[in-house]
Design a protein around this nucleic acid. Structure first.
Length: 951
RNA sequence: AGGACUAUAGCUCAGUUGGUUAGAGCGCUACCUUGACAUGGUAGAGGUCUCCAGUUCGAAUCUGGAUAGUCCUACCA
């Protein structure tokens, strides 16, 4: 083995070997265990969130595979309608073309081409992470099979009356020219104005205070062009007399009614609200209640139409409506129109006032454009009936969220769920399987042929398919069963469905998790016909942020690429990476400064295992995870520690008898102790897997490997292996323990650290008498209660106590670590005496002792530095070594600490309430503590008196 | 406006059903190149567990309130 751990030298080769041997495929034996990867966006590349969640999924997958399950980790990606179309359109733009120049079919070919060439970034990055996904079953939401599933689901939902088409207000993205769901809209607080305009009253009416106009307030003056009512609160005395009267809408000369509606808040603004039902969700509802006409004034770019369009609430155009708009507005961008409206009102003397106002502005999460509520024909899924069983499944525990608190988030959304707009005005995606005849009648079926036979349509009837595609999340919602071949392959669904756990972030509980649950429960049934869940558990991970708790984002320039952590990156490259392709190039200087400050040396190469271990250690139950590179460095050192421990084991076992061929074996105390401790670790690891506590698991492994196996056991093995007088049986026992405990540790750690464990395992496999080509298919260690040895553990605790005691004296007295010390033992029990005689060799080596002397009751002790191990006094004679004042200081410190503890415990024991009410075992424990402390205090005081007498 | 979450060492975080001498990584101090490892070893410093009140024999842990921060949902045009 190399002297230092070099991850880049080992990781690639093992992954290739695993993949080419197809060891990631389900074994076909044992209980099934299945995880569906949340399909990454095909345009995406690996970010910290992926690395985090995939580490957890891979750990679970490898763990269950090693436990003998028929394990499938299903991978794939989704087609990301808008994102992908955007990427390819940008590519076209560089060639000076638009998608319309190519036409739909050619454009889609082009997208496929792009997908083949560039869509696999994330797959190769997943290999770097060590993900043991079954690549032979990789799926893409636009694959034929998954597309069939999408059509099947759409048609069945339509036939079940759970999908319908309607003209409704949607969130319209005027850049991408498509509807987006309200989940894709980000509301951001921005500074704007509240403009107050005067609307003259018609027919000579006046307000209560004698004005011939009423004032309405708006943040979007351009929508005045579509006003069809003014609303006031029915209880508002100022306007009560005007209800039922009319105003003359300035510029348009339109007569619109004043209506009364509880929606209006008299306190806000002027207490009068202009109603624009075709351009505002609230106004739509108000308008509907009062029969105010829907007047649309915007086109798909959010520019003003040349003539407004009017509709009824069931979506029928009103032909006789006069859509004429004032001169100069047609074709104006909405924001220019806003300025013009304000100017025109001002010119007419109808601009009452302007007030600063902060408001929430809806923006598209991808385009960042201001989203416009816009009246269009769209397809919807009736969410309520589908949500009901999905709510029940969580209520009755068929699906459990981990941590449980997320169930509340889920319920609160599901109980107030809105119909889901599933159509998107894009080309890239699943085209909606609906056809129209010339009269606009709609026919839904799996294909045009099926539609013709299903609806008995004449062959001569011309049908055109709906131009729109389905929301990407529609196909993602089918992911757990469509990837298994539904509806064609029921057998795989039977084997792997329901899947075991979904590992995902809380940010997509609504987008995806809830919708998967709704779809799956509706389409997949158990043998008894009851709805089947997509997964039994939802493990919700925290969101990875930077070390200051900031969300990682390109514009903040604080994104960390997991691959950079694995391979390392120098600071110049990192700066270049973070400052290129910015939406706002002026941020570059700031980002560079911050990056150079945070990473003056760039990032060191840490390797995949260290990254994975770090991510696992961060997987606590919290909602946010602040990623600190310092933490990673610590765990990289841990990998190095494992590496060097393995080197030590190999140096002492290779070519020697480790009991792999049998032979008598005698186990030392240390051997029995570490084996016993290992059982405890195995129990802990098991428990942490079932509780999804990867942080506690990694901590348990870390502590055991470093603080027990390396710090103590390896050191304790040295006196045995270096003892020329030791018997073959004892040495064989220690070598065997050395190598077998290491081997078990490798298997325990393998699910989190696949590469280093494989590398070391292959080189110690034979010494540990194991067979197999890879650690990943070895059985996961299981605790054997018979090997738990409480006596051995207690004895080693005693040994450690003595050694630490001597080291403490050494450290605080500034005695050279290399100087052998004579040590005396006084006031010990028979048990202490036994332990001393059995472990003299360990003590001498580990504490560097020159001699060991047991003092009997009457033996005189020289003046010494003292350390207590229980009742036993460990004495290091002071002659020539120890400074009296220093020893006094050391003892005083110990005395103070112990006295404080004693006082605390005695306080408790003197409290009658405590003694009468606390459980007996707690009291017994406290008494024991008190006795121990009291004894220590006496001894320390005595010792201090002795020292004082010396002076 | 409603709801949720968080507050523990200088920094990033653990602390399982109330009983621990409150822990880890990084950082810090002193000493040490000892035959696995200086990406190391040994010893150490550092915390009134945000504040206030309550429940309890006993609170970092449970309850209420305050303060600060984060997020989600809904928004008043």
């Amino acid at each position: 083995m190399e002297k230092t751990y070099q991850p880049q030298a080992i990781e690639g080769k093992h992954y290739q070997r695993w993949e080419s041997n197809e060891w990631f495929k389900p074994s076909g034996q044992g209980d099934s265990y299945c995880i569906m990867i949340p399909p990454p966006n095909v345009t995406g590349s690996l970010h910290m969130g992926h690395a985090f969640q995939q580490t957890i999924m891979d750990a679970l997958t490898r763990y269950h595979r090693m436990k003998g399950c028929n394990t499938l980790w299903q991978t794939g990606s989704d087609h990301a309608g808008i994102a992908t179309q955007m990427v390819v359109e940008r590519e076209l733009a560089r060639e000076g073309k638009t998608r319309h120049d190519l036409g739909r079919e050619t454009f889609i070919d082009r997208v496929w081409q792009w997908k083949e060439q560039s869509g696999g970034t994330i797959s190769s990055q997943m290999r770097r992470l060590g993900d043991s996904v079954d690549w032979t079953r990789e799926r893409f939401t636009m694959d034929e099979g998954l597309s069939n599933a999408v059509r099947e689901v759409f048609v069945r939902l339509y036939d079940d009356n759970l999908i319908y088409r309607g003209k409704r207000l949607v969130n319209w993205d005027p850049v991408f020219h498509t509807a987006i769901s309200d989940l894709e809209v980000e509301n951001k607080e921005e500074q704007g104005s509240l403009w107050h305009f005067r609307y003259p009253l018609a027919d000579g009416a006046t307000t209560a205070d004698g004005k011939a106009y009423i004032v309405v307030a708006t943040t979007r003056p351009e929508t005045i062009l579509g006003d069809t009512a003014v609303a006031v609160n029915p209880d508002d005395e100022r306007y009560q007399s005007l209800i039922g009267k009319f105003v003359d809408l300035p510029l348009l000369g339109r007569r619109i009614p004043v209506v009364a509606d509880d929606y209006v808040d008299s306190e806000f603004g002027s207490g009068c609200v202009k109603i624009t039902p075709a351009h505002d969700f609230n106004d739509y509802e108000v308008g509907k209640r009062h029969g105010a006409t829907l007047v649309n004034v915007l086109d798909q770019d959010a520019k003003i139409l040349h003539a407004a369009e009017a509709y009824t609430y069931d979506g029928k155009p009103i032909e006789e409506f006069n859509g004429a708009l004032p001169e100069g507005y047609g074709g104006l961008d909405r924001f220019d129109a806003r300025k013009k409206i304000i100017a025109d009102f001002e010119a007419l003397g109808l601009l009452d006032s302007i007030k600063d106002h902060s408001l929430m502005v809806p923006r598209g999460d991808r385009s960042d454009a201001v989203i416009e509520p816009w009246l269009t024909d769209q397809w919807y899924v009736s969410a309520k009936p589908l949500a009901e069983p999905a709510i029940k499944a969580v209520e009755n525990g068929d699906i459990q969220f981990v941590p449980k608190q997320w169930e509340n988030t889920y319920f609160s959304w599901m109980r107030d769920i809105q119909d889901w707009c599933i159509s998107r005005q894009l080309w890239w995606g699943h085209q909606i399987p609906a056809w129209y005849d010339a009269d606009g009648n709609v026919y839904v079926g799996r294909s045009e042929a099926e539609v013709r036979s299903k609806y008995s349509l004449d062959a001569s009837l011309t049908l055109t398919q709906d131009e729109d595609v389905l929301d990407t999340w529609f196909s993602s919602a089918l992911w757990t069963f469509s990837t298994l071949g539904w509806p064609e392959r029921e057998d795989l669904v039977k084997t792997f469905h329901p899947t075991d756990v979904l590992v995902t972030g809380f940010d997509i509980i609504f987008f995806w998790v809830a919708r998967m649950m709704m779809m799956t429960l509706h389409f997949i049934k158990n043998d008894d016909g009851t709805p089947q869940v997509p997964f039994k558990k939802v493990y919700v991970t925290g969101l990875i942020r930077d070390e200051n708790g900031q969300k990682m984002s390109k514009s903040k320039g604080n994104v960390i690429d997991p691959i950079d952590l694995i391979d390392g990156i120098d600071v110049d490259d990192l700066v270049a990476k973070r400052t290129s392709g910015l939406m706002q190039p002026k941020l570059a200087a700031k980002i560079e400064k911050m990056t150079r400050k945070s990473f003056p040396e760039g990032m060191a190469s840490s390797g995949t295992d260290a990254l994975r271990f770090t991510l696992a250690s961060l997987a606590s139950q919290g909602r946010d995870i602040n990623f600190d590179v310092k933490r990673l460095e610590g765990y990289r050192n841990f990998c190095n520690k494992i590496w060097n421990a393995a080197r030590y084991v190999l140096m002492n076992t290779e070519g020697q008898d480790c009991g792999q061929n049998g032979g008598e074996v005698e186990l030392s105390l240390a051997d029995r102790w570490i084996s016993s401790r290992l059982q405890g670790l195995e129990q802990d690891v098991e428990r942490h897997y079932t509780n999804y506590r990867f942080d506690l698991m990694s901590q348990a492994l870390y502590e055991f490997i470093w603080n027990e196996y390396c710090d103590w056991y390896l050191e304790l093995s040295k006196p045995v292996l270096w003892d020329e007088n030791a018997s073959a049986e004892v040495q064989r026992g220690t070598r065997r323990t050395l190598v077998r405990v290491l081997e078990a540790l490798l298997r325990l750690a393998h699910p989190i650290m696949p590469f280093i464990t494989e590398e070391i395992w292959l080189s110690i496999r034979d010494l540990a008498a194991r067979e197999g080509d890879t650690i990943m298919l070895q059985p996961f260690p299981k605790a054997d209660p018979a090997k738990i040895d409480a006596a051995a553990e207690a004895d080693i605790e005693w040994v450690k106590g003595v050694i630490v005691g001597v080291r403490n004296i050494r450290g605080e007295m500034n005695i050279a670590p290399g100087k052998p010390l004579p040590v005396l033992f006084q006031k010990g029990s028979d048990e202490d005496k036994r332990r001393l005689s059995e472990n003299e060799n360990f003590l001498k080596t580990l504490a560097k002792l020159e001699s060991v002397t047991w003092l009997e009751e009457n033996d005189e002790a020289p003046v010494s530095a003292t350390q207590l191990v229980g009742q036993l006094k460990v004495l290091v004679p002071m002659a020539g070594l120890i400074d009296v004042a220093a020893e006094q200081a050391r003892l005083t410190k110990a005395l103070e600490k112990t006295s404080k503890e004693l006082a605390k415990v005695e306080g408790k024991l003197n409290n009658e309430n405590f003694v009468s009410k606390a459980p007996d075992e707690v009291i017994a424990k406290e008494r024991e503590k008190a006795d121990g402390y009291a004894h220590s205090v006496r001894e320390l005081e005595q010792q201090l008196e002795q020292l004082a007498a010396l002076k």
